[in-house]
Amino acid sequence: MNYRVLGKSTLKISEISFGGMSLTGTPVEDTRLLLEALDRGINFFDTADLYGKGANEELLGKAFQGKRAQVIIATKAGNQWRKDGSGWDWNPRKEYILSCVEGSLRRLQTDYIDLYQLHGGTMDDPIDETISAFELLKQQGKIRYYGISSIRPNVIREYISRSNIVSVMMQYSLLDRRPEESCLPLLKEHGIGVLVRGGVAGGLLVDKPAVPYLNYSEKEVRYAAAALRKIAGPAGHPARTALQFVLQHPAVTSAVVGIRTMPQLEDALATAQMPPLSEMDRRYLAESLPANTYELHR
C-alpha cells in the first residue's frame, strides 16, 4: 500500500481508503472486512453520523477496539435527523456541530477524531460560525483536523479563504470531471488534500448497465466504460483502472472506496499494487468523452 500525507496535516493515509457507508452485512461480516482491510494496509476509514443513524460509527468503534493507534478515522456532521425519523435537515450551526461530536466520540469509542468533516455546505450557511465550531474542537483536542465534503466550487473557495481545512471530499471520476476545471487546481495550489468518492461512478464504469449520468447520454456512458476495458486489457479490471485514473491527478490524496465484500476489498487493494497508467493511456481515457463542468454553484 502507498501512503500520502493529507494536505497540510500530519496524517499519512493510505491511497485507497475504506468508505464505511457501503457496509451492509452482518456485524460479524463487516467487522471481519474492516479488520482485514487494516491488516492489509488500509489505515484511513471514513464514516458519518448520518450513516445508519450512527450505527456505522458504532460498528467502526467496536471493530477497532484496542487498535485505535493503527487507524485514522474520519467522520462527518451537519445533517440532523428529524425526531420522527422521516429524514434529515441541514444544520451547520455551531451549537449543533459541538453537540454532534460528543455522540460521534461515544459511538466510535475514542476520545479524538482524526478528521472531522462538514457533511455538505451551502453559500447560505453561517460559514464563520461553522468554522468557529471546528476550531474550538481542535483547541479542545476532540478533533485533530477538519475538512469539508462538498462538490460546490463557490463553497470550497470560501473555506479555502476563511478556514484551516486540510481536505475536501468530492465526487470525481472519468464520468464526473467537473472538479478538474477549477477545484482540483485550486486545492492543489493551497496544499489541501482531495479525498475522492465515486471513482467508479456508482459501478457504471465497471459492471452496471449504462444509463444516462450527469450530462452524459447512455451511449456516452457505454463508450467511457468501453474505453476503460480497452486500457485494462482482456485480463484486467476496469475498477482498478478507473481508480488509477483519479489517483494520478496531482491534487488527489486518496480514493475512498465503498467496500461491501471481500472480492471488492481484494480489487481495491490490488489497485494500489498496479503500475501507474502511462501518460498515453490516461490521455486516451480523458479524451474518450468531452470533460463536463459545473453548471451550478460556480
Rank of each mutant, 00 (worst) to 15 (best):
T130C: 11
L136V: 04
L137H: 00
K138W: 06
Q139R: 15
Q140V: 01
K142L: 14
R144H: 09
Y146N: 07
Y146R: 09
S149D: 02
I151K: 06
R152W: 05
N154L: 13
N154W: 04
V155M: 05
E158Y: 10
I160K: 01
I160V: 14
R162N: 03
S163L: 05
S163Q: 02
N164Y: 02
V166S: 07
V166C: 03
S167H: 01
Q171N: 13
Y172W: 07
L175D: 04
D176R: 02
R177M: 11
R178N: 03
E181C: 00
S182M: 08
C183A: 15
L184T: 13
P185N: 14
P185E: 14
L186I: 09
L187E: 12
L187I: 15
E189N: 01
I192L: 00
L195T: 03
L195W: 01
V196K: 09
V196W: 03
V196F: 06
R197H: 09
G198H: 12
G199N: 06
A201W: 00
A201T: 02
G203W: 00
L204R: 11
L204Q: 07
L204M: 12
L204T: 11
L205I: 08
L205V: 12
V206C: 10
D207R: 07
K208Q: 10
K208D: 01
K208S: 09
P209K: 03
V211I: 11
Y213C: 03
Y213R: 05
L214I: 11
E218T: 13
E218S: 06
K219Q: 15
E220R: 15
V221I: 03
V221H: 00
R222G: 07
Y223D: 10
A226W: 07
A227L: 12
L228R: 13
L228C: 12
K230T: 12
G233A: 10
P234A: 15
P234L: 13
A235Y: 11
G236S: 07
H237K: 14
H237T: 14
P238R: 06
R240M: 08
A242S: 14
F245K: 08
V246W: 02
L247N: 05
Q248G: 08
H249T: 01
A251C: 05
A251T: 13
A255V: 13
V257S: 02
G258P: 08
G258I: 05
G258T: 08
I259V: 06
I259C: 04
I259Q: 03
R260N: 03
R260G: 02
P263T: 10
P263K: 08
D267G: 01
A268Y: 06
T271C: 11
